[in-house]
């Protein structure tokens, strides 16, 4: 046992829609041990100081994607960020940037969910296939074309990082476009032309100004910036070549 318990100051952005006009910061003094994550710090506050503190969490091991927040202004998963790395300085935790706050650290993700649905995030087969044709055969090369984009856990840290999403919430955004790209690149899928309508739309890839912060903050090492920028090229090709294509490209 250490003779003196270390105590870190955690500054939390609080907002109660029923009583507060706008969010405000409150400071809590939290005793912590070396193995305590920022999420555990928030849980300590909820258990010992204020049971009304609201935040999302589930798995505690960086796979569910629920516990994203701004930690000293940087979008991070609070379960894999440790208090010891900030001590003895004060640490500030806030709701993820660029999203409307519902309560305290919980943001409204309904816009993101709508975007996720809009990209048709499932395999749409190239041609009808019957059971007796057996399983799809995929080469390692075909597999490698999309596998990294499957690692997304929908934590939306990339949206909190994206300055363009911050300015235009209609932008489809990094994670949804990375997932769209994941299905487009899958050799079993044949709906790239259908999805192009969204990629090339005013809400689509051209909102991106290639800042690249989305890929930097991604906890699963997906590279959404890459997916977005590949699709800029695809959309530009579609724009100029659509008159030559027999189907006329997307509308």
């Amino acid at each position: 046992m250490p003779d003196s318990q270390r105590i870190i100051e955690i500054e939390v952005l609080r907002y109660n829609p029923e009583s507060d006009k706008e969010p405000h910061l409150e400071v809590y003094k939290v005793p912590f041990s070396d193995d305590m994550s920022v999420l555990q710090g928030a849980q300590y506050i909820k258990d010992h100081f204020d049971g009304s503190l609201t935040f999302r969490w589930s798995c505690r091991m960086a796979i569910c994607g629920s516990c994203g927040m701004m930690i000293n202004g940087i979008p991070k998963l609070s379960c894999e960020t440790f208090l010891r790395d900030y001590f003895p300085n004060r640490i500030r935790i806030e709701a993820m940037a660029n999203f409307p706050i519902e309560k305290d650290l919980v943001v409204d993700l309904s816009g993101f969910i709508e975007k996720l649905e809009s990209i048709q995030p499932y395999i749409i087969p190239r041609e009808p296939r019957s059971l007796d044709q057996g399983e799809y055969i995929q080469s390692p090369e075909q597999f490698n074309a999309y596998i990294q984009f499957t690692s997304c856990i929908n934590c939306t840290l990339c949206y909190a990082a994206c300055p363009q999403f911050g300015l235009n919430p209609d932008f489809i955004g990094p994670a949804a476009i990375a997932l769209l790209h994941r299905y487009n690149m899958d050799s079993r899928d044949g709906a790239a032309a259908e999805r192009m309508e969204l990629v090339a739309a005013e809400e689509g890839v051209f909102n991106c100004s290639a800042v690249g912060y989305c890929s930097e903050v991604c906890p699963k090492h997906v590279d959404p910036a890459n997916a977005v920028n590949i699709n800029k090229t695809n959309a530009a090709k579609d724009y100029f070549l659509r008159f030559l294509s027999p189907k006329g490209g997307s509308k």
């Binding site: 809009s118 048709q120 259908e194 999805r195 309508e197 969204l198 090339a200 739309a201 005013e202 809400e203 689509g204 051209f206 800029k232 959309a235 530009a236 724009y239 100029f240 997307s250 509308k251």
Partner: peptide, 14 residues
């Protein structure tokens, strides 16, 4: 797919 999508003219400038 969302309804009422408008194609962006950004490719020209991009």
């Amino acid at each position: 797919m969302k309804a009422g999508l408008k194609r962006s003219n950004a490719p020209i400038f991009w």
